[in-house]
Design a protein around this nucleic acid. Structure first.
Lengths: 190, 190
DNA sequence: CACCTATTATACCAATCGGTATATAAGTAT
DNA sequence: ATACTTATATACCGATTGGTATAATAGGTG
């Protein structure tokens, strides 16, 4: 494995374990078996390293999300397909997923939050688009696309964290996805 | 205001803004207009200061939660009362609530998580107790009290973060509480 | 071979980190 | 008046922070 990838992976591990601020650059290069100038050669700063880590995971996630979230002429089905992919991606990269969640809830003036924000916004835009295209299906949708999108993202994240927490050995994406969309749609119509 | 309270409040502000690790002890005493030995006199370490901040808010929260969560012979009503108090407390202390959420999602090996964990556990125990006392109401409850408790806590936190995020100027506790419990109960029975 | 660019390490930087030894002032109890 | 406790500041500690100046070492290309 090349040095860049190695540093990236060791940093990811450490950030997930201890958090961005609690990990020193020296600690990262020690684990990677290299030295600081090498790290600063590939990533120009500690913050640049964080950005690269997020881009590595979240970039791929956004590509897939954009692909699967195309409107199918039916809201529950579109949500179901989107939800399945969301769950799948998170389960495949559990550690990174939990790390990004911790970043999302981190302090607003912290570098961690600054780094994750553009990806949060982009994710939100993709989900909002689903509800915009479903406007004809739901009466009184006016201006509530943002609200529904936040709600949907929130409930998916909540299910994920919940199932990771109780340590379900085998998570059935199809079943959870169905329950989740059902419960969400119930919330919308009530 | 005495020096101890002043340090406590300044530290709370800074931790909420930037996160525990990103704030230095010097920065805290500068804002409080005092010096480090004073801080170390009242709280024996930076970690002790964090513990005091959490205890200040979460201690009161747990007391109230324990009081209102007594079982009323009816699950939805008990949940509704508990939920109302949970929402009320969070809305009254919005900044501190959001700070504790950020701690809950912080890295497992970070001091922030170590400090919040006992309070998370205690909260969970209180909610579990509700579902244990409702065992006669729900068939097939065996061993799922923990699951329901996690689910309930999750959905309440999700609603709160969601409403704080969209910046609803006036949050109707009664209405949100009702919707929330309804949606949760629907999830249980389906 | 000579040249060039991409990598990597040694050794260092000022600044900040969490924390403390020591001194002092003010109040209080004997 | 003496002794003790509480509360605060000056000045310092070694260790670590993120980051870099410099130089050596590759590997490929003319």
């Amino acid at each position: 494995m090349d040095n860049r990838t190695n540093i990236l992976e060791c940093a990811t591990e450490l950030f997930c374990e201890k958090g961005y601020d609690a990990v020193g650059v020296q600690e990262i290069v020690d684990r990677a078996g290299t030295t600081k100038p090498t790290l600063y050669y590939y990533f120009k700063s500690k913050y640049g390293l964080l950005e690269s880590i997020i881009e590595e995971y979240y970039g791929r996630f956004l590509e897939r999300l954009e692909t699967v979230s195309v409107y199918q002429g039916d809201l529950p089905n579109t949500l179901y397909t989107t939800c399945r992919e969301y769950l799948k991606m998170a389960i495949e990269n559990k550690t990174m997923y939990l790390f990004t969640v911790s970043l999302i809830y981190s302090a607003r003036e912290n570098d961690s939050y600054r780094a994750i924000r553009p990806y949060m916004v982009k994710t939100h835009e993709i989900i909002v688009k689903i509800f915009e295209q479903a406007s004809n299906e739901l009466e009184n949708m006016n201006g509530r696309q943002q609200q529904f999108a936040s709600g949907f993202e929130g409930i998916v994240n909540f299910y994920l964290i919940y199932y990771f927490e109780i340590g379900e050995p085998r998570i059935d994406i199809d079943e959870i996805g169905k329950n989740l969309v059902d419960q969400f749609m119930y919330g919308i119509y009530s």
